[in-house]
Design a protein around this nucleic acid. Structure first.
Lengths: 222, 222
DNA sequence: ATTTAATGTGACCACCTGGTCACATTATGG
DNA sequence: CCATAATGTGACCAGGTGGTCACATTAAAT
């Protein structure tokens, strides 16, 4: 049941499922490879073997096609994160952080092209409604981390001499970079994340969590 | 004394200093605003009030102009970091990390357009020789952090149950993101870094260092 | 003053883009 | 079977790009 404010055309909605998927798949590939501006509708229609006019009967313009795809992206993220996190509702603070990272890895594995699009949007200046789009996806990490931190401070699980905003900032920085490094090897700082086995990844994640917990200094118990 | 492998033309090198600066300034502005691909040579020459043919007598093509500018960028980074760090040669590990962050802030304040170019290159897929260029700039953070960590582990300043590579990774992630947030408000996760006074920034930096030192857990002394 | 070399110039080129539209084709329903 | 609506089509458009080149202008050297 689509709303009447749908960004896509009735014509597109009435298309046979198979064709609709083919079109989206190809468009996602193109946007993932080239970002918004450099993505070429000519290339998309050429690869699909359909006329350009047809594409313009499915979506009013390039922007509409892109926004439709990004909307799917946010839904996919939402679902993936929820699935990974909702299980451990009452878990320890750092366990929940760990789950967020794992769900991020899962998302990248499941929908690498969509994650590419997210990265592109993040750093491409003139994608339409960029800030809103980023905010939509970030809502999960931000709106998720902030209450998590507050709760943890309440429960005495983390220190309260540091503002929540700074804690969230550090968590977000490390998590984001870890995922970026997993998707883009040249950003992993030599960790070689993309080539690691699930076990190897888990070890790295656990050590990162350990550092976040106890810091880089020598521990008293050692 | 330029090498004979110079990327720029003799004609450009013989230009009066003032004109050379004007041209570079305008080109830097354009690349900073639009990245490599979308930067327009037509726009540059229009703003400069020179003919396009002239620009092509200074640089063989768009790529040469860009590489010349990026080369200046790496030199500027090198100088800025060296100046900030060399003073505290024998300082504490975390103090040196703090200095790196401060020198990053200094660089962004001094050469905002150049930092913009770096960010663009970092996430624009088809800039020529992107990986080499990134590596050149990263060399400082990576090749700087790694020996720093090793030395610190030797001196017993940081724990040694965590591989150096992971320590470097976390440092790099946090430092990079902090600087990105300082330059791009929508990346600062609500910290509002770009609007803060130097004192405010210093406080944030110090708290981040504290967390890196001692972790997020409640400290025994509290 | 005259020749020669170095620079400056902008119209022009081929190519690509997002978007349009008159027309062909197909489906639908009476 | 036919009329009408829905869908598919690709040549075409204006606007932009990086790059070229024959020519004008200036500087240097003889």
């Amino acid at each position: 049941m689509e709303s009447s404010l749908a960004i896509e055309t009735n014509t597109f909605r009435n298309l046979p499922e198979e064709k609709r998927q083919r079109i989206l798949e190809e468009a996602v590939k193109e946007f993932a490879a080239n970002g918004y501006q450099k993505a070429s509708l000519n290339t998309i229609v050429k690869r699909l073997g359909i006329a350009k006019g047809s594409l313009y009967q499915y979506f009013n313009n390039k922007q509409a096609l892109f926004l439709f795809i990004f909307d799917r992206l946010t839904h996919l993220v939402k679902d993936t994160v929820k699935r990974s996190v909702s299980e451990g509702e009452e878990a320890d603070f750092f366990e929940q952080v760990r789950r967020i990272i794992v769900s991020g890895i899962n998302f990248i594995d499941s929908f690498p092209a969509y994650y590419q699009i997210y990265l592109k949007v993040l750093f491409e200046p003139d994608v339409p409604q960029r800030e809103e789009l980023i905010a939509k996806v970030r809502l999960f990490s931000m709106e998720f981390f902030a209450p998590l931190c507050n709760a943890a401070q309440g429960k005495g699980q983390i220190r309260h001499d540091i503002p929540t905003s700074l804690v969230v900032f550090i968590l977000d920085a490390v998590v984001d970079r870890f995922l970026q490094g997993y998707a883009k090897p040249y950003l992993d700082g030599g960790l070689n994340l993309s080539a690691k086995s699930p076990q190897g990844l888990e070890e790295d994640v656990n050590m990162i969590i350990t550092i976040l917990q106890d810091g880089l200094c020598l521990q008293k118990g050692e």
